[in-house]
Design a protein around this nucleic acid. Structure first.
Length: 946
RNA sequence: GCGAGGGUAGCCAAGUCAGGAAACGGCGGCGGACUCAAGAUCCGCUCCUGUAGAGGUCCGCAGGUUCAAAUCCUGCCCCUCGCACCA
């Protein structure tokens, strides 16, 4: 027996697989299975979470291969967009955090760092040194001939074709869209480029166009429905404001606000500049109520938020309420600003909605209840949120709202907004609710830019996408609804970026097609990627791809090579399963469905998607920037690839989150090690070539083996890697434990059975732990596992199964009694039920689990009627027992000779309990045994210990 | 807020769709066998009570349906994830 040494086994099989080109897939006469996984984005290294993402499809690929399919499992590399460029820039700048991740988390040697200073150099390093190395070490059965990057010229030709065709179909559209924009760099930025305010969302502020002296003063608000409650407005007296021509009007806004408007597709020209003080004390006119209200000074107004002027609704805004009280209390300050304190004293809060749980003036109640007294009190945020929520979802508008009176605010806000917008009283602008700073240090604002969109809200396209969702297999099934929901929710998707790696948009080559938009149908590219290498780039015209994907009739003079490739594409397509992450359902996976539904015919649509959960490390989220990751290379070196795979596949189903815990992984390794040593021990033993005569216990084990084959196969078909590996590995270990207890393993029959079992299990486990199983299979049979086992009907035998379960049950019962009584018996008497009881049992199986019905049948027999109460009790027990067993089991049970079963196991019981065993029928019990023997029930013998 | 998933014994976790045995496994813990000893392996026990295989109380909380509920229905509480131009 040799020790389990995963590293030597694994390297031996790697070499074999590479030399024999084992996983290179080409069209054959066999059925095809095509399985894909999102191509990795090598902006950093690979961690153990990625390892699972790629191992799950590998298990399926290996499984289908054993089932006899030609299986294609390819990998490519996604480099599109800005993340890699950003990473390179941070490296070149010598940013500490970036260097730390590269050197300490991903172990990049110092003298190699310079190679990473170009985007493709960076990508190439992680592709070769991390992803590919790890994937090979994990034993992924990938056809490496087909790899490519999305920055390759040939791939770009393919994407160009895709976008030409989408444009032909009018699914692309040009338009304005809000983007995050760095004012200093004068460029759009991504979340990745943001240093502060990463979470910030675009807010669309309503601008209420108050009027002052022929000029518009746009008050920015998120609550336009409060327009009737405005009592005054606020401006920052010390901040810089401007008078500007905005489109064809004249507006007064903060200087910051004017700059933002300028970037939001408005024509802005500054005419004059002054501090907010100039407007303080003036009267402005509400465009809806036509009422005049004063402009008051307030320090809490942020000139860098929207227009820098706000309206005050003290009845509903806690901030406004507090500010108004403060203004009333500080007559001195008002006078300084040239305001008559009397006018402020005269201002009364004006409620515009009734809010459940609050009095007439909700803001006052909220503020007083929380005892907040100043606009700088941090508690105010909570009060504001709570009141806002209650008002939005529970506030009913008062009578001044006319047709909207009595309505809940959340139901009508948008309508009110639109109505006044149409009338010209309202306008709108975008801004963030917080400060956003880019990594470059510039202030980030919301700008509106010309952009190209994919029209995911197009009615026909949406319809097709829905059809694609309906026709595919969704694993787990609960995700189907998420796709449906996403399709209904998706609007237009901006599909270009200003810069980055990738393919220029053919209609406007200044822009690059963004990453989520150049990765929707690339699975089709895998089918021919290796063969495109031999074709000059210039030859890869849109017409070439038309021929490749649509066949000879698609163009007038089809290219010969393209026609050949068309066959290859047809052989592999559609994708049978795409294995991906939960988090991609709301974008990538749905886009994948959209584009397939549009560009390809229904038979080529995705057949199935498996969504996977996330990975945790010791119970916490993994994070490469915090160094809280485990690298596959480290794990493989420590435990071996089979252990890593088995843990990832066995600790949770693919769609559940898994938790990488070192002690758990260690246990997994121990289990595999034990399996290995048991197997080698078994392999070394001589086994008869022909099947020798088998004992019932051998047959029992083979029955369990058939059930295991079935369970494992069914589970794998459903991508239940945990259930499958549990059945084939742990589940079967249980049976073996019992088998070893029950029988002498030196018998020829036992040796034969155990090897038969081993061979089958090696095949069942081959997809999970390919190195270990192929090694052992070869030692056992002389060749690696090449087929998937099927259930052998010759070994299905319910009688054997039930008989053995009786022995197990009796063992348990005796154990229980020994345990409860704390005795160590010298003699164990087992009494099987008397014949009349057996008759009653048969009657119950015949009549069914209905006490009344059985009793009336039974009472017709005089010899049973005599036993009255006793029979009644027995029927009750038996009805309970029979309920829940199916008819087949019951009919098998009626054939079983219970006493013989126990007699045959006498030796086993004697050994188990180190006692003399006596098995007899209740009817044959001596007088002094009668009392115990009476308790016997069919299939539940009475037991007496001495 | 919207959408999705989830709450099962000390921990992890099956069972829930197709209602029917305190509820598969594993870990940890306790006891025992083997051993000079340790490890490995094997066997019990591990909600409460119990010197006869039993009884009691259980599956987030509260109700309901049913002969029967972890499973079906209703309400509530708590947790996780996604919500867009970002891979």
């Amino acid at each position: 027996m040799t020790d389990y040494d995963p590293n030597s086994i694994e390297s031996r099989w790697h070499d074999r697989w590479t030399e024999t080109e084992r996983y290179q897939a080409d069209p054959t006469d066999d059925e095809s299975t095509f399985i894909t996984v999102p191509y990795p984005y090598p902006s950093g290294g690979m961690h153990i979470g990625h390892a699972r993402t790629y191992t799950v499809p590998d298990v399926y690929a290996r499984y289908r291969r054993l089932q006899g399919d030609a299986v294609l499992f390819p990998i490519g590399w996604h480099v599109t967009g800005t993340p890699i460029i950003g990473a390179v820039e941070r490296l070149k700048k010598g940013e500490e955090e970036q260097l730390d991740v590269l050197q300490n988390t991903y172990n990049v040697p110092s003298d190699t760092l310079s190679e990473l200073e170009t985007p493709m150099g960076f990508a190439r390093y992680f592709i070769e040194e991390h992803y590919k190395t790890n994937m090979k070490a994990l034993g992924l059965s990938v056809d490496w001939r087909r790899e490519f990057t999305t920055n390759d010229e040939r791939y770009k030709r393919f994407i160009t074709w895709q976008y030409e065709r989408l444009n032909d179909r009018e699914l692309l559209e040009k338009g304005l869209h809000p983007v995050k924009y760095d004012l200093e760099q004068e460029n759009a930025v991504t979340t990745h480029d943001i240093l502060e305010g990463e979470e910030a969302e675009f807010q669309e502020y309503t601008l209420v166009k108050f009027e002052w002296d022929g000029t518009t003063v746009p008050m920015a608000t998120l609550r336009p429905e409060t327009i009737h409650g405005v009592t005054n407005t606020y401006i920052d007296p010390d901040a810089e404001y401007v008078r500007a021509a905005v489109d064809d009007e004249e507006w007064i806004v903060s200087a910051d606000g004017a700059e933002k408007l300028d970037h939001q597709a408005r024509d802005v020209e500054i005419l004059d500049s002054f501090t907010g003080d100039s407007l303080v004390g003036e009267q402005v006119t509400n465009p809806v109520t036509e009422e005049s209200v004063p402009v008051l000074p307030a320090g809490f107004v942020d000139p860098d938020n929207a227009t820098g002027v706000v309206m005050s609704v003290p009845a509903h805004s806690p901030d406004d309420w507090i500010a108004l009280q403060a203004a009333k209390a500080d007559a001195e300050r008002l006078r300084e600003h040239g305001i008559d304190p009397q006018t402020v004293q005269a201002i009364d809060a004006r409620p515009i909605a009734n809010v459940e749980g609050y009095g007439e003036i909700p803001a006052r109640d909220a503020v007083e209840f929380a005892e907040v007294e100043s606009t700088t009190d941090p508690e105010l945020e909570t009060v504001r949120q709570e009141l806002y929520n209650n008002e939005f979802h529970g506030g009913r508008l008062k009578e001044m709202y006319g047709e909207y009176a009595g309505e809940i605010i959340s139901d009508v806000r948008d309508e009110i907004k639109q109505e006044y917008q149409q009338r010209g009283a309202f306008d709108a602008m975008y801004d963030f609710a917080e400060t956003v700073i880019s990594r470059a240090g510039g202030k980030v604002i919301v700008a509106e830019q010309e952009t190209w969109f994919l029209r995911y809200n197009d009615t026909d396209w949406t319809e097709k996408a829905h059809e694609a969702v309906e026709s595919m297999t969704a694993i787990p099934e609960t995700t189907r609804e998420q796709y449906t929901h996403t399709i209904d929710w998706l609007e237009e998707w901006p599909c270009i970026r200003n810069y980055g790696l990738g393919t220029p948009l053919p209609m406007d080559e200044d822009f690059i097609i963004e990453p989520l938009s150049d990765s929707t149908i690339y699975m089709s590219y895998y089918t021919i990627a290796h063969r495109l290498q031999d074709i000059p780039v210039e030859q890869l015209t849109p017409a070439f791809f038309d021929t490749l994907f649509y066949g000879a009739d698609a163009v007038e003079e089809p290219d010969e090579t393209a026609l050949e490739l068309h066959e290859e594409w047809e052989y592999w397509y559609p994708v049978d399963f795409r294995c991906s992450g939960n988090d991609l359902i709301s974008n990538h996976l749905t886009f994948y469905l959209y584009h397939h539904a549009e560009l390809f015919e229904e038979p080529q649509w995705p057949q199935g998607i498996t969504s996977m959960g996330m990975g945790l490390l010791e119970g916490k989220k993994m994070s490469s920037s915090k160094g809280h990751v485990v690298l596959p290379s480290e794990a493989i070196e420590e435990y071996g690839a089979d252990t890593v795979r088995f843990f990832l596949l066995n600790s949770a189903e693919p769609w559940q989150d898994f938790d990488w815990r070192a002690d758990r992984v260690e246990d997994t390794r121990d289990q595999l090690e034990r399996f290995y040593s048991r197997a080698t021990e078994l392999i070394e033993r001589d086994v008869p070539d022909e099947q020798p005569s088998l004992e019932p216990i051998d047959r029992w084990l083979l029955v369990k083996l058939q059930a295991t084959i079935e369970a494992t196969t069914d589970a794998l078909e459903a991508f239940e890697t945990r259930k499958a590996s549990q059945a084939a590995f742990y589940g079967f270990e249980e049976h073996l434990r019992w088998y070893r207890r029950r029988t002498d393993r030196d018998r020829a029959g036992a040796r034969w059975t155990l090897q038969e079992v081993l061979r089958t299990r090696l095949e069942l486990l081959a997809p999970f732990v390919p190195f270990l199983t192929n090694e052992l299979h070869e030692q056992l049979i002389g060749e690696p596992a090449t087929g998937w086992p099927s259930v052998d009907p010759a070994f299905i035998d319910q009688t054997v199964e039930i008989e053995e379960s009786l022995v197990e049950q009796l063992t348990e019962d005796i154990n229980d009694i020994v345990d409860v009584t704390g005795t160590d018996p010298d003699r164990i008497a087992v009494y099987t039920a008397a014949d009349w009881k057996r008759d009653v049992f048969e009657q119950v199986t015949e009549t069914g689990p209905d006490v009344g019905a059985v009793m009336s049948e039974v009472m017709e027999q005089p010899e049973l009627r005599e036993r009255g109460d006793e029979v009644n009790q027995l029927v009750g027990d038996l009805v309970e027992d029979v309920r829940g067993r199916d008819d087949e089991t019951l009919s098998t049970m009626t054939e079983i000779e219970e006493q013989t079963v126990y007699e045959q196991a006498e030796e086993f019981f004697a050994q188990e309990f180190d006692a003399e065993i006596v098995v007899k029928n209740e009817a044959d019990a001596e007088d002094d045994e009668q009392e115990q023997a009476d308790d016997a029930v069919p299939f539940r013998p009475a037991v007496h210990l001495d």
